[in-house]
Measured scan of single mutants.
Amino acid sequence: MASQGTKRSYEQMETDGERQNATEIRASVGKMIDGIGRFYIQMCTELKLSDYEGRLIQNSLTIERMVLSAFDERRNKYLEEHPSAGKDPKKTGGPIYKRVDRKWMRELVLYDKEEIRRIWRQANNGDDATAGLTHMMIWHSNLNDTTYQRTRALVRTGMDPRMCSLMQGSTLPRRSGAAGAAVKGVGTMVMELIRMIKRGINDRNFWRGENGRKTRSAYERMCNILKGKFQTAAQRAMMDQVRESRNPGNAEIEDLIFLARSALILRGSVAHKSCLPACVYGPAVASGYDFEKEGYSLVGIDPFKLLQNSQVYSLIRPNENPAHKSQLVWMACNSAAFEDLRVLSFIRGTKVSPRGKLSTRGVQIASNENMDAMESSTLELRSRYWAIRTRSGGNTNQQRASAGQISVQPAFSVQRNLPFDKPTIMAAFTGNTEGRTSDMRAEIIRMMEGAKPEEMSFQGRGVFELSDERAANPIVPSFDMSNEGSYFFGDNAEEYDN
């Protein structure tokens, strides 16, 4: 993207840094990872977990959730003011799984939030270390993106479920800051804005008074975040219109849905970061690795190297396929839920299948599930090659597409044709070009129609051997075009429920 120079890199967003050079960025990201790792080690000690239990991804998720809940100030305040039966607002906890007599047992633990905050700050040299908290939120978000298709949420806001490739980060909490905003897809931002506008339509006082002023500035800020994701002048001009509207209503909703559809071809720039579970960072720190000293990046080879040398386990339900569970977590670790499966298959070195073909449910185990038949197995999170994460949407291309997802959002900077089903997408653009945004709409449609099938995206960008740390010898991959490109292809993934 041309304006790259004016933006802070995501590592800076990730670490609240002012302008830093590459070495400083690597050190501050490393410091953040160190903090998460030290916190995780301490929690495993508190909970008396064995090494194996500490490497269980379900335990990692519970521990991450506990610290996120302990620092969720708004919710904590709300819980104190609106006490609900049987919930102690000062405590947080969740299921911890232990191996007892050759069987997995679930144990519900409860801790004072104050105590968890103390352990977290102690692991982070006394700081609140917001960057580390956001990092864990993005890992949870990436896992949700890989596990669930947001059909219901899309339909509720009037969008087409086939636009799911635009929904990265749709389950990120509001408090995820600049680093969170960077990884949100165009569809996620559109959905947040539509929800806001709908509230304004239904509630006369939404934009009024002292609160209304705050609401208005939040609305304009979200519009600017979305505008910054678009790469064409016409899309940005249309966002200006939406932002400046005196009284946002149905016309703005129409414009936003139009823009979301246009992003299936004229893709937005959305950041991709490899955020790993805390149970990967903990053992690495415990083994003596100093992330701050060595430096770390979320968008280069580092996460690949770390996963190459990590042992992570997962509980497996009786009829689940461990290899499929591994694929789910591998995609989440690489922030690749909406990437082209052919690119992923090449990088991973084994075939990556669409969601609907995987015999696996989510990673988390519900409290009512029976533990008797639970097994555990090693997650295979290694890769054959590594590639640089991208934040450009890439230019655009036609490809055989599917009944489910009709476009992709690249996660890796790797040369390819970008699949999208042009006739299906263009069919949504018939007729409606009147109104105050008509010239911009016409211009956007013209650009979409001009998108050429034979153009290559990320020209000359390749993948790298894991021994090639400096990215000196790019390998331009070859793809098996007979395979499906979309992950949520004609899909039956479970729906995400809060």
Rank of each mutant, 00 (worst) to 15 (best):
S60W: 10
G86W: 01
E220S: 09
Y385D: 10
M239W: 02
G295R: 10
T433N: 02
R470D: 01
F479H: 11
M371K: 07
P410D: 00
Y148D: 05
D468E: 09
M191Q: 12
K198Y: 11
Q311Y: 02
P419S: 02
S326V: 10
N309F: 03
S314G: 12
G349M: 05
F429C: 13
V476W: 00
V29I: 15
R342G: 15
D160Q: 09
F206A: 09
M238V: 07
S170I: 03
A271E: 08
F464K: 00
Q122I: 15
A337N: 09
I25T: 03
A427Y: 02
A337S: 12
G394V: 07
A373D: 03
A337P: 11
A260E: 08
A123D: 06
E14T: 06
K214E: 05
L358H: 11
V100F: 11
M481G: 09
L418F: 01
R267F: 02
D101L: 13
T188N: 04
P318H: 15
F479G: 05
M13K: 11
P477E: 03
G450N: 13
A286G: 15
V183Y: 05
G17T: 09
G450P: 09
L418A: 02
R461Q: 12
M191I: 10
F458Q: 04
N334Q: 06
N319A: 12
I201Q: 04
P161D: 02
N21E: 13
G394W: 07
W104G: 06
R26K: 15
R55L: 13
Y52L: 03
M371L: 15
L266Y: 05
M13S: 01
Y496K: 04
R74Q: 12
D302C: 12
Q235I: 10
N205C: 15
G209P: 03
V476P: 09
N321G: 03
S310M: 01
T396Y: 09
H140P: 03
S297E: 04
I444K: 05
A129M: 15
A271P: 06
G249A: 11
D72L: 04
N370I: 11
R382I: 02
F206L: 11
W120D: 07
A336P: 00
C44F: 06
A233W: 03
R38N: 08
L133V: 09
R446V: 11
M448Y: 00
M426R: 05
T171V: 09
N321I: 11
K273T: 07
L341I: 15
E375G: 09
E210S: 08
M440R: 08
V363F: 08
Q415C: 08
G169A: 13
D145G: 12
D302I: 01
D302Q: 15
L307G: 06
G169D: 05
L358K: 09
R75Q: 03
Y97R: 11
L133Y: 07
I265D: 01
F412N: 07
Q122F: 12
G132K: 04
T430E: 00
R267P: 00
D255H: 08
R208K: 14
A263N: 12
A27R: 15
N473S: 14
M374L: 14
Q58S: 05
I257M: 14
V190N: 03
D290K: 08
S60M: 14
F338K: 01
V109K: 12
A442N: 13
V285P: 08
T151H: 05
